[in-house]
Design a protein around this nucleic acid. Sequence first.
DNA 1: AATCCGTGGAA
DNA 2: TTTCCAAGGAT
Length: 354
Amino acid sequence: MKAGVAAALLTHYDRHARALPWRVPPGSAERPDPYRVWLSEVMLQQTTVAAVIPYFAAFTTRWPTVTALASAEDAEVMAAWAGLGYYARARNLLACARVVAGQHGGRFPDTEEGLRALPGIGGYTAAAIAAIAFSRRAVVVDANVERVVSRLFAIEAPLPTSRPAIRDATDAITPERRAGDFAQAMMDLGSSLCLPRNPQCLLCPLRESCAAHLEGRAEAYPVKPPKKDKPHRLGRVWWLERADGYVWIERREAKRMLGGMTGLPTSAWDKRDSDKRSPSKPEPPLAGEWTALNQPVDHVFTHFRLTLTVERLRVTDARPEGAGQWWPLARIGEAGLPTLFAKVARAVMEGGDD
DNA sequence: AATCCGTGGAA
DNA sequence: TTTCCAAGGAT
């Protein structure tokens, strides 16, 4: 059954593999470029293919090699990543590029262990790069593989408890050759047929081997724990505009929310209904007659929802407190603002005169 | 081990 | 509208 699953899947993949910008067609004599494989894998962490494609194109055009990327300025790379989310990835991406360029002669390590030691490369990504770029046999387990394997073996234990069993089962069906194609085939299967909801079992090349399908309840797997509801936080954001067409933006500290990115000054983001004993009163970057926009800006993060009241002040000249810079409004799209602050900018531009 | 970290598309 | 969740990693 083991060899049968891999063989059936690879045959299906040879015919149905998605054409993706970072992928070499199965059977091609061409070897994938490790830089492009790495870049795509990092971008694809918790991120959809559709969202990644334009960013991958922009990055590879602007920085065609890992050495070129390593030479880029931090602010350039962070701005190029703006909107893609999980900004620690961009910080680690640059750190990784600099290690590869500076300590490995511009070549990526070709083993899982060597890759795993690099910033931003964890167990999944190390296995994926080793298999796809270096033809190593590696056991590649992502969320797609977890779903497919949970169904193939009808694994009853809920995630994340089932992870070791899923890993062992994946190991058991991973072929000695073409492990990279096998991994990509599993991910294609998970994204096109073996879907979280409404899996297309009748079209699946593995249906005869799939315990969940034979039970008639593929959609029941993987079993997941109930999720917690998101708390709601509130805060203020300050839009400080100079009469000659500039807005005050800051560089956010690394290691916190949206770390390393540009942003607008904000208050702390407090939990709703919580402590009146708020430690610090919200202080705008400049004293003055701030006026609030009628419409607040709502944004949803992974683990909380945020509502920001937008306060606005126009000045003729000022030197606000803190580190920041005046940015030309005409080029606000190039400021590298993450989506939260891009929303604020849009709200001000569109409804700013109330 | 559990928590933190973004975003947008699909249903 | 709400809910789900996507090629996870770091701490």
